[in-house]
Design a protein around this nucleic acid. Structure first.
Lengths: 216, 216
DNA sequence: ACCTGAACACCGTTCAAGT
DNA sequence: ACCTGAACACCGTTCAAGT
């Protein structure tokens, strides 16, 4: 599959002088603006450079290709989401199944819908970004948190917490994405806020065995 | 948003002679082959035409643009899935919540994973295809079936079957997609076949009220 | 050390010319 | 009625030349 040729994604040159740092930030900021204002289809290196007030050549001095630029935008978004989510998980240790289900559903949804327009444009470009490894690493961190929460739930035990965490995460990311792509008007979002916790609760209850009554 | 300019998607010319029917089929078949063999990134009108043994101009005589060609490929895939799903739903009328949950999960998963390579390439191109209306219409049919099933379940009643059907469908399409995009090795697929029914069961039980015992 | 912009390869799409 | 393929506009990317 020629799709899988790995392009370099790191900046080819670390900005060393003040001038260039300004340039990199300007390009990055311009990228987000073009994404918001012009949408995924009209997201063009030429346009980003123009908006940033530099020439295309300059852009390519710091981002080896369009993919790398998008990759960097995605990376910052995912990092933000990941941190918000991790913080929420910290407050859920040792809680009940219901509290965990509701908590992770709410936390993920809130983090994800913070910058909705950018999120939607990035979804559209996911084919070009080749963000697989990046997404996987972020999801791995999320999954670890989920797995810990499940293993430490106060009122249930799981045969295979990592497996359940894997599925729980597919539910969170998949369901939210499905609804967001369907337009995601205020009404659909409101429904999601109510239903997503229910979905998580329901699955966890199916997947868990109740804690046996201790005899000692 | 310039993304939303509607391009014509219908064939600009209906094939009237045998020769042209052959051409259209050849192009369509070539499109699927290029999708499978070269992947989403190298899916090019020139390449499709070459593979079909016609000139680019000919391709554009029947498909007004690349999007329309992809649209047609997607349409045929979705139709196939839709029909398989509808058939399965027919056999689930008036059954229990558990049977319905397991049945729809299995049916959707089976239909979706039938042509896995094409499905994956189409996912990657979903930004370009602009298949929104098409997907919506197919999902609308699916949702209607789901809603009917829920309303007619033998052992539960729902306050708002369409709302639950909406969410159930987001679970089906979203979760399957999330796992497929994550690589979808045999192991992940096997897990999905086991877990997806559980997820559906769990959600439906959360969303349903048990049928009150009849007093008459 | 950083920036510029003309130049190149490639892609989607068109259209005058053919059969 | 159908097909061809050179031509056009536009995009990603490079690199010789500048400061």
């Amino acid at each position: 599959m020629p799709d899988t040729v790995a392009l370099p994604l790191k900046p080819r040159k670390a900005p060393r002088q003040t001038r260039s740092k300004v340039t990199v930030d300007a390009v990055h900021e311009a990228a987000i603006q073009v994404l918001q204002a012009e949408g995924a289809v009209r997201f063009t290196t030429t346009r980003v450079a123009e908006r940033a007030g530099v020439s295309v050549g300059t852009l390519y001095q710091y981002f080896p290709n369009k993919q790398a630029l998008l990759h960097e935008v995605l990376r910052r978004r995912l990092d933000a989401i990941s941190e918000l989510f991790a913080a929420a998980c910290g407050g859920l240790r040792g809680r009940s199944l219901t509290e965990i289900a509701d908590g992770v559903a709410r936390a993920y949804l809130e983090a994800k819908t913070a910058r909705l327009d950018v999120a939607r444009a990035l979804y559209k470009l996911s084919a070009e970004i080749e963000g697989g490894p990046l997404v996987r690493s972020v999801e791995h961190r999320m999954r670890t948190r989920l797995s810990e929460l499940l293993a430490g739930a106060e009122d249930a035990v799981f045969d295979d917490p990592p497996a359940v965490a894997f599925m729980l995460q597919a539910i969170l990311t998949g369901t939210v994405r499905a609804v967001l792509e369907r337009g995601a008007d205020a009404q659909a979002l409101a429904a999601l806020r109510i239903q997503l916790p229910l979905i998580c609760r329901g699955y966890l209850r199916e997947a868990a065995k109740p804690v046996p009554v201790r005899s000692s």
